[in-house]
């Protein structure tokens, strides 16, 4: 089985978000970048499937050279080889176009990625890639098994789950609890250094959205404290003052 896992390079989840003074760019000063947490589920599940059934796992990132540390990390976790499309991931449509172009050449059985990146929160690339390739996308998947040419995916919907059998090839976007994400071990880190990492140039530059400016949410004006002895008063305040119950 030939599996493609798409990863993005995102600020660590503990990052305090700030922007450049003109509010046009994310301020990367002092920020640690990690593999997008949702993509880690996709990556680990791909490696588990490969270990159980044979095959290859290729990691794909659309990013500039500074993402290579995290691509090497994905190789250390257990991917076999990697492709970096040498471009800034400007919007979901652009990234999906790059992924679909590579997938068209390689005929992967399974294309996995996180349901969304924790920076842009687009939740779009999975379906765009699938539509460009003319194959189904199942999103978000919380369980994924493959038996021969059939994938069985448990998909989360609002208020329940669906069980879907689909013929490969398909795209699945991952969310917990698909698996327990792995961290690289020493042997993995050593072997990752010599695994192939191919850099390719992007196809076109078309986008469909442009970020104009960023802003931060308004600060709360202050918390009203209620003594624990009179805790019941909170309910009165929620009804009469905040008017939310």
């Amino acid at each position: 089985m030939k599996i493609l896992v798409c990863i993005s390079n995102v600020p660590d989840t503990t990052t305090k978000i700030t922007f450049t003074p003109d509010n046009k760019q994310f301020n990367t000063a002092g920020v640690q970048f990690v593999i997008n947490p949702y993509d880690e589920y996709a990556l680990t599940r791909a490696i588990e499937l490969k270990e159980a059934q044979g095959g290859t796992v290729t990691v794909l990132n659309v990013g500039e050279a500074d993402t290579e540390a995290n691509i090497r990390k994905a190789l250390a976790i257990g991917a076999d080889d990697a492709i970096r499309v040498n471009a800034k991931p400007t919007d979901a449509f652009f990234v999906a176009t790059q992924i679909a172009n590579i997938a068209k050449q390689e005929n992967y059985d399974l294309i996995l990625m996180g349901k969304e990146s924790v920076d842009y929160n687009g939740f779009q690339v999975h379906g765009m890639v699938a539509e460009m390739l003319g194959i189904p996308s199942i999103t978000p998947g919380v369980k994924l098994d493959v038996n021969g040419n059939t994938a069985t995916v448990q998909r989360e919907i609002e208020g329940g789950h669906e069980i879907i059998d689909a013929q490969l090839p398909i795209v699945v976007s991952a969310q917990q609890p698909m698996c327990e994400p792995r961290i690289p071990n020493m042997r993995g880190i050593m072997t990752a250094r010599t695994k192939p990492l191919k850099v390719v140039e992007p196809t076109g530059s078309a986008t469909k959205t442009e970020i104009d400016a960023f802003s931060l949410p308004p600060q709360k004006t202050g918390v009203k404290m209620i003594s624990p002895e009179n805790a019941g008063e909170l309910i009165t305040l929620l009804r009469n003052e905040a008017k939310v119950i």
Binding site: G122, Q124, G127, M128, T139, I157, T209
Partner: peptide
């Protein structure tokens, strides 16, 4: 902006050559 909305919107955007904004 639901799981169903994401599953529809992402495909529809490609099919109709539309700009998509979620969230």
């Amino acid at each position: 902006n639901t799981n169903i909305g994401a599953a529809i919107g992402s495909r529809l955007a490609v099919r109709l050559e539309a700009s998509l904004a979620t969230n």
